[in-house]
Design a protein around this nucleic acid. Sequence first.
DNA 1: CTCCGGGATGTTATATTGTTGCGCCAAGGG
DNA 2: CCCTTGGCGCAACAATATAACATCCCGGAG
Lengths: 145, 145
Amino acid sequence: MTEHVSLALSAAERSCRSKGLALTPVRKRVLQLLLESQAPVKAYDLLAALKPGGGAQPPTVYRALDFLTRAGLVHRIEALNAYTACLHADGHGSAELYICEDCGQVEERHRKISGEAGPGGFLISRSVIEHYGRCSDCASAQASA
Amino acid sequence: MTEHVSLALSAAERSCRSKGLALTPVRKRVLQLLLESQAPVKAYDLLAALKPGGGAQPPTVYRALDFLTRAGLVHRIEALNAYTACLHADGHGSAELYICEDCGQVEERHRKISGEAGPGGFLISRSVIEHYGRCSDCASAQASA
DNA sequence: CTCCGGGATGTTATATTGTTGCGCCAAGGG
DNA sequence: CCCTTGGCGCAACAATATAACATCCCGGAG
Ligand SMILES: [Zn+2]
Ligand SMILES: [Zn+2]
Ligand SMILES: [Zn+2]
Ligand SMILES: [Zn+2]
């Protein structure tokens, strides 16, 4: 396990403990898999990665993902049906994601939490913001090709 | 068929003709169903609504939706797996959507087309922006309750 | 200690959403 | 006429997600 993964995992444990949430083995394992991946991961790929150590079924991974997203440790990428570990291990609510369609890497910016107003008095409680394109690495690689 | 629906349909026809696209009967019917709905519609609900006039299969509706979204006449709502007719019958690329979680109504704002730059030189080609909350009607209804 | 209750997980089955592949046909250009 | 092209019918299937119920564990009340 690389350095940054174990760091993120212990940060997640602290964060959960402080909120009275239980970061159980399954949940921790799912989070670890997401942290180790350089790109978003699909639920059934997580499921397959869990299989070796006991035959996991879909509900197992979906429940873990549900917990982790509620805890703010993981973000769901709506347009890809995929999941990515939050880059700010402290959990922060809503995020603005930049997803490279070339290498799959995800960058993330914080978003102010809900409560904003939209047009015509619309009251926002949650936003989904996903930008697709090329990260700077892939853009320059393509330019030089 | 209400006034605004038939108006939007003819606008769509003109728009397609001008771009050399074929707004065939199936596609037109799907667009009409979306226009008539006050809330986003799911693919299989469209499918069911098409059945009466000939047994439609999934590919039929998905192909029509694909065409309509490409033509900019329909927007897919990623977080709901649902579709809504574009409120600007001219087709305009990407949109910013405000979806009321109470009544289902969708408001829409134009977005400048892609090409924007994100953080660290990220080059955006497409954005998904969906805000969930309460429209002003539902917010005031709830306040008075 | 014992019993109970809630949370987490296992297990089975099913629901929902979306795609592939093939063949037919009608329109249009040579 | 022949050939290509795009649109659609059709059958099967793949991928994503949830429902419903059983079991286990653990900590607190009695
Ligand atoms: Zn985050
Ligand atoms: Zn990249
Ligand atoms: Zn629009
Ligand atoms: Zn509303």
